[in-house]
Design a protein around this nucleic acid. Structure first.
Lengths: 157, 157
DNA sequence: TATTGTTATACTCTATAACTATA
DNA sequence: TATAGTTATAGAGTATAACAATA
């Protein structure tokens, strides 16, 4: 059976204006993205946010933990647990700087560096148009509109 | 201070290719959508999925509970609880049909009908371009691309 | 006093499996 | 045997507040 048809026609459920609702479509799209993520990387013991965190730490060595949390839109209390997990697995290192001993600065270990490089293509490539069927142009446009939506939300909360 | 700048520049955090990742952007956009939702409707005791459910039941009276769950991408176990909450609040009615006494068919009560009509503009209007700053054209394009992304995901899981 | 991060608690959403009642 | 829905349980993400250490 054709699951694509099943999701949009077989059921014959009338969604009306809900089908134009950005909020509703964002939720459905994220469920879809999670399905893709776990279908592709279920064997690796890693959660979606963890790769993002390591990726950003790699590009910003010594990034303060709270700033990482704000950037990824993860709450500080949750970030504490995530950082500890990544540290326990030997992927990141926490450093307390002398100039502000309240803060925590994050670095990738060589194992973390190796991990990111090994899975870089898989994680960032999952959004490649080959995987989700959107053309490169549509993908770029979707990314642009999502960033616009987010930026406008931040400007007028 | 300008929170829009804060989210994209003040921090100076380099996201690299993550800023083109549909998966990452979808997550951030949904956080943004939730913030909007609760900023606008925090006083009403209603969760995002509950209005969607009532909305769809209203347009499809007698919809089977499992089919509603599949349509909204909500798991059956979770739908059981949501339906009970809505029934407890007097918004929907559960009917066991004689032709298949395993199934449950859902209808809006007059109170549910009144509730949907009273908040229709608020809930579906939250995605109006006035709220998120996207032009009508950009909004329509974003909706189209999100639906495309979801449909392609369903076709090739 | 304010800031950074931690701990503790609770709630929502999700995932899974076992269960019932019906078919 | 298969299907529709329920119950029970666990996990992950989130929100909140209280807290410790430091500024």
């Amino acid at each position: 059976m054709n699951t694509k048809v099943a999701a949009t026609e077989e059921v014959g459920v009338d969604l009306g204006e809900l089908n134009q609702s950005i909020g509703f479509l964002l939720r459905v799209a994220q469920v879809s993205a999670f399905d893709r993520f776990f279908a592709a990387f279920g064997e690796i013991d890693l959660r979606p946010g963890e790769f993002s965190a390591m990726w950003v730490i790699r590009r910003n060595p010594g990034l303060r933990q709270g700033l990482l949390a704000d950037t990824l839109r993860i709450k500080a209390a949750h970030m504490t647990k995530m950082v500890r997990r990544l540290e326990d697995r030997g992927f990141i290192q926490r450093v307390i700087p002398d100039d502000d001993r309240r803060s925590v600065r994050l670095f990738l270990t060589s194992a973390g560096e190796k991990f990111v490089l090994a899975h870089r293509e898989a994680f960032l490539g999952q959004d490649d148009y080959h995987h989700h069927g959107l053309s490169p142009e549509d993908t770029a446009e979707l990314a642009r509109l999502l960033r616009l939506y987010v930026d406008n939300g931040d400007a007028t909360p």
